[in-house]
Write a protein that binds this DNA or RNA. Sequence first.
DNA 1: TGGGAATTAATGTGATCACATTGTAAGCTC
DNA 2: GAGCTTACAATGTGATCACATTAATTCCCA
Lengths: 239, 239
Amino acid sequence: MKHKAPLKLSLEGQDPATTVNQKVYQSLRHALMCGEIPPGRALTIRELASTLEVSPMPVREALRQLAAESALEIQGNRRVLVPKMTAMKFQELLEARVALESHAAERAMPYIDSACLAELERLDALVDTAYDRGDHAQVSICNQQFHRTLYSSNPHQVTVALIESLWLQLGPFMRLATAQLAGHYQIDRHNEALDAIRRRDAFALRLAISADIRDGIGFVTSSGLFQDVIEPRTNSAPL
Amino acid sequence: MKHKAPLKLSLEGQDPATTVNQKVYQSLRHALMCGEIPPGRALTIRELASTLEVSPMPVREALRQLAAESALEIQGNRRVLVPKMTAMKFQELLEARVALESHAAERAMPYIDSACLAELERLDALVDTAYDRGDHAQVSICNQQFHRTLYSSNPHQVTVALIESLWLQLGPFMRLATAQLAGHYQIDRHNEALDAIRRRDAFALRLAISADIRDGIGFVTSSGLFQDVIEPRTNSAPL
DNA sequence: TGGGAATTAATGTGATCACATTGTAAGCTC
DNA sequence: GAGCTTACAATGTGATCACATTAATTCCCA
């Protein structure tokens, strides 16, 4: 069994005004974010190039770019693969998200004007309707847009790139989590966040964002329902 | 005056066992970290290629990689340049460092065994001797190694890549700061950190790391002695 | 002489090719 | 038949080339 599952990728729907490199990058990024490429899957330049019907060149650059964002992993063999996930790593990614995003939210607070607030309310509404529709992919996208808009309101902000790297690393699992969320009724943390913003209460905003992140995918570790995607327990013996 | 200052780069001293791409990457990274390329300086592939006496190919990939780490900026024109620094952005980078690194330190604490502690003590001693010698470049390098070792003791670590991105973004200014530090006598925050580790006091470690970061370069903003490298005040009008 | 259009130079992008390295499979020996 | 060696295929890397786009310069005319 050496034949890996064929990759389901295409450049359709990509902005034709951009470079091929960017189209490949976006395509791969989207596939990773949606978990369409299983962890541990090896990616070769020529395979991707022929799948996407482009020359190897833009693929090389896209892979290197994604590797620099920790979305892909290049091992010593110079082979590129989708990083595997472990329960511990998942926990670390989650806590890193909390630390970084609550920080970014707090620092964004002073810059949130009424226009930005309105935009956040609009995005929150989009999340809700997508949620009611059961469109988990859309929920995920709008939710990210909500967070991105919030943090980006700080014009001197430097953390969004880092945060996006974290999103990318646990992308597949966020999708998985939102899908599972359908059953649960969750407190609307976005509303808590919006309330905090209206009251200009930075600390409350911190709490709301932290809770939102943990509510969103935090329970996944305990639910144990994604054991198939996760690496079997490693034999690490710390300390 | 269209001729930019010639770049002082070379691949000498690079590990000959690595790929050309990595050598170029390391060379550029080092130059950026040491502030040898002024902010705003445009970098062209062909210029770097001829300076380093390699083909444009590895340079392209190195530039894209550094851009993915926010160490370089690619503008719409597809031109690559060293990002400019502003006082506000500097502040944000500093606070992001504090948030991320104190988080990483706290999370590393449970994994620090005696071997790791010994290594940290060794690195701290190296910092001290380099400091006494007045070798600011070496201080910077050893100091980073100290932090990296601390955070990396957590085997499930996911933040080091993000932290390195921050270091890279304010690299030139860290160097500038350590150079200025020569005059000041600073409390040895590393010793405070080591003490906290020995007592296994996670909160004290947090405080020590935060203080170490702020001590190291925090005063730069108030000292106003790097106004020449900083962008003139922007006309942003938040809120 | 100043401003704008056309020309020219420079640059990024993408493709193709050659080579060294790595992974795999066949073949041989014991 | 097991283990090692050798041959083969596949892959990443780097170089060179062609082309489209962008920046810079020159030239012309008001």
